[in-house]
Design a protein around this nucleic acid. Structure first.
Lengths: 326, 326
DNA sequence: ATCACTTATACTCATTGCTAACATAAGGCG
DNA sequence: CGCCTTATGTTAGCAATGAGTATAAGTGAT
């Protein structure tokens, strides 16, 4: 019942600065030859000291990066044998309990060895704010749809179907939440660097598939982004990333950054304002250019008024025109 | 980094039979004096044999109960020190990775020592299909709202606020998904049997707070029910619990059983039919009484047509009449 | 000072989705 | 044969959404 097993905690710490979602990365020790040394902050669970898993996480994140985490939520527990990198290596099996944490912009970058990475450098195909990412859509989606099995075989057909759903091909709608599905398809079809690394193969990753992280950390991050996008819809998580007072544009840009979408400004305003999510303070923010904006704050009372308060995002309704001729 | 830690897997295996959601429970070994011996099926992770966590789960569930699981989804990882029962006991810290599995009704109950428990025997306050559960609402909700701290103190006020939101008191709306919130409030206020047991206290649990399970298994089940209710909205999970062919009434009763709510029949029908979730086969089910019903099947194509296909449930919109005078 | 430009905010309108009621169909049963 | 039960079909009204148009209030250039 208790074999050699190591339990660790990983943290996906997200902030949004300058309309860019960022994730905190640390340089991984070990793996000295590898050119890519970045990974998620990880730490042990000390059963002696930490009463709960979440406290353990907060404690070593504080020690390791100086950050005091606010919003923290458990994400997923990763424990597949293939987690470890590169081929058959017989160290102890490692299980990692991943957490998602949100911090306000301007949080200190912490000690040396930690940086904020642009999330969309790791997932270029997820950012649709300026239309489909240039050059990515025509490359990445087909890469995910092409199979590794025999052409025309059942596994190929099934993967094709999955790719259509994940990437919104062949009449399917794009669902922003399916970040993990998309990454996993790219991994399975050996389009991303990690897949080649783990297989020990020497070929080059498909262009436009973003930069890699250590171990399965990009997969963990994909889970986190998908979860976060989903949660935007029904929990007021966006406010965890903003200062106490903010303009509606700031709020909208933050949501857009996470969702990877542009939103209709007037409707967004109506939704959050009439939805009771925010309330105006009288104060005025003197903007860089244009008319000054009112400063708003989050209305906590909305939690008792509405069952699932979140910002309005498209993609939960039927496709506008489903001319799905594959 | 590796202290005495045991990693186990727990399974919340859910079926719906006769309009009743049921969960598979096994008699717990050990705890010989305790009157309540039921708990969730649990098993080890064998790092040698099982390539992934999910495979490990399927494998020992098969061995232990004879069930071949279909739909399986990871739920949450529980690792608080307080998991273990009854006071300071210094065995190894145990971490449990909980999974939710759905099986079709009529699945064999498996070998001796396993039964299906009615979920609402464990959470009577969650079943609103016949109006508020008789006698429960006036008792349970106040129990959750009363505090253990000093009266009027900040912790009391905060708990009151949480109770209002969780139980839909004081003008707040009832949110079916907040199963865990409600159970945790009842635990914190020592209303449920487990809280008294874990504290070693001798008093009696509040009437109407349902039967207990071993360890933190009722908490795990609360997570599962909440997750399942949420998922009904945007994933076609209900079909995992039904035979391949079913009438719309069967489908509705299954959904109602899980949601703990009565639904408007005509609207439900329109939503699933026009929503493309089901398609009629020509076949007719000769019912017990009344007009025979057509048999339907799940339309898999809906997955590519709609981003988040699920059955319509109330509770995602604004409260009908928000006359929230506490 | 005024104009062009930028951003914020307000209002309108059509469409879609949801609620709830009404109406009809098709069996079993006394 | 009429009544009960359950299934199925239709429609009006309202709420939420998506998208367009208009106005307000600043900044900086001419």
């Amino acid at each position: 019942m208790s074999e050699p097993l190591v339990v660790g905690l990983s943290a996906v710490i997200v902030a949004v600065t300058d309309e860019t979602p960022r994730v905190l990365a640390v340089r991984r020790p070990g793996a000295p030859g590898a050119p890519e040394g970045w990974g998620l902050p990880s730490g042990p669970l000390d059963p002696e000291r930490d009463r709960t898993l979440e406290l353990a996480l907060r404690s070593w994140v504080r020690a390791q990066t100086g950050l005091e985490l606010g919003y923290v939520e458990q994400l997923y527990t990763f424990g597949d044998r293939e987690r470890r990198t590169a081929g058959p290596w017989d160290g102890p099996r490692e299980i990692s309990i991943a957490y998602l944490a949100l911090v306000r912009e301007g949080a200190a970058p912490g000690p040396a060895g930690a940086t904020w990475l642009d999330v969309y450098d790791l997932f270029p195909w997820e950012d649709w704010r300026r239309g489909g990412p240039p050059g990515v859509d025509p490359v990445v989606a087909p890469a995910a749809a092409r199979g590794v099995g025999p052409a025309g075989g059942p596994s190929r057909t099934a993967r094709r179907e999955r790719a259509d759903i994940a990437f919104g091909l062949g009449g399917a709608a794009w669902d922003g939440d399916r970040v993990l599905d998309r990454y996993e398809l790219l991994y399975e079809t050996r389009a991303v660097a990690e897949a080649l690394r783990d297989a020990g193969g020497g070929s080059r990753p498909t262009a436009g598939t973003g930069r890699a992280l250590a171990l399965d950390h990009r997969r963990i991050l994909a889970s986190a982004l998908g979860r976060l996008r989903g949660k935007l819809r029904y929990r007021p998580v966006a406010f965890e990333l903003l200062p106490p007072l903010f303009t509606l544009s700031q709020l909208q840009r933050t949501v857009e950054a996470l969702a990877g979408l542009r939103l209709h400004q007037q409707n967004f305003r109506r939704l959050v304002e009439q939805g009771g999510l925010v309330e105006g303070t009288g104060k005025i923010e003197t903007r860089t250019g244009g008319r000054p904006a009112e400063l708003f704050r989050f209305r906590r009372e909305v939690l008792r008024e509405r069952p699932a308060p979140g910002v309005g995002l498209p993609g939960r309704r039927r496709r506008r025109s489903a001319d799905g001729a594959a």
